[in-house]
Design a protein around this nucleic acid. Structure first.
Length: 234
DNA sequence: AACTTATCCAACCGCCGCTAC
DNA sequence: AGTAGCGGCGGTTGGATAAGT
């Protein structure tokens, strides 16, 4: 392995610790669990291996298709891609991509040299939003300089009207409503190419406040869904 | 059977952005 | 304003195992 393999006993201690104290506060986990591991190792072990509902084994055809599509849109943002594949971890997706798909796609591109396939790809990056200042704040986390530049450019070159903010929010509300109706089969079905998740919207509609961090995450997730929808439907 | 090469994937590393002080 | 500490992410490493000779 790339490092020292985890033993069953270590796994058991970590599991017990997470069950008792919950996720987060990773810096305290090694001490609380009595493990001679750093916070990052503990977090990684939990996220990639011990967490409940982790799917093991080969990727299904639909999952592979999803990965390819999402990678076209998002680039190497494995955590975002994995977030759209229930039970799969970012590490799984990354490994699968590096082992299988990248080679396959490279070979394909070499065959189709000069074709437009790869050239026309436009990777989606988080976009400037007008919903809540905390959203924009949170959005910056873990993003590259390129993302920041892009967000800045979008701010500069926005095509919104003078009342851009309202327009944007209206559009997103329209989208959310459409998504909700579509889920309930109330509008012409079939337009949605993917199984979009709408926890954020549903939580909002149901009046579920939840913790601020949770609702924030759902908002970001939801907004990304909107990006994906726009891209797929165009 | 013995050896070499290729593949897989768990674990580690370094960096980034956020928060609190 | 500066900085230390944290969580999180993507890239890389290297041991285990399968496949090939």
């Amino acid at each position: 392995m790339g490092g020292v393999a985890w033993t069953e006993e270590e796994d058991h201690l970590l599991k017990k610790c997470i069950q008792q104290y919950g996720e987060g506060k990773w810096h305290r986990v090694p001490l609380l669990a009595g493990l001679n591991r750093c916070r990052k190792s503990c977090r990684l072990r939990w996220l990639n291996y011990l967490r409940p509902n982790i799917k093991r084994g080969n990727f299904a055809e639909e999952e592979v298709e999803m990965i390819v599509k999402l990678h076209k849109l998002l680039g190497n943002r494995w955590s975002l891609i994995a977030g759209r594949l229930p039970g799969r971890t970012a590490n799984d997706v990354k490994n699968y991509w590096n082992c299988h798909l990248s080679k396959k796609l490279n070979a394909l591109e070499a065959d189709q040299e000069g074709s437009q396939i790869s050239k026309d790809v436009q990777i989606i990056r988080p976009q400037a939003r007008t919903i809540g200042s905390s959203s924009a704040k949170k959005r910056g986390q873990g993003e590259s300089q390129a993302d920041k530049v892009l967000v800045q450019e979008e701010n500069d070159t926005t095509t919104l009207d003078a009342d851009g903010k309202n327009h944007m929010v209206e559009t997103q509300q329209d989208m959310m409503m459409y998504s909700c109706l579509d889920q309930q089969g109330m509008v012409g079905g079939g337009e949605f190419p993917m199984d979009f998740q709408l926890e954020g919207f549903e939580a909002m509609v149901n009046g579920g406040e939840g913790s601020s961090s949770n609702s924030q995450w759902n908002w970001d997730d939801l907004l990304l869904d909107m990006d994906l929808y726009n891209d797929f439907s165009s």
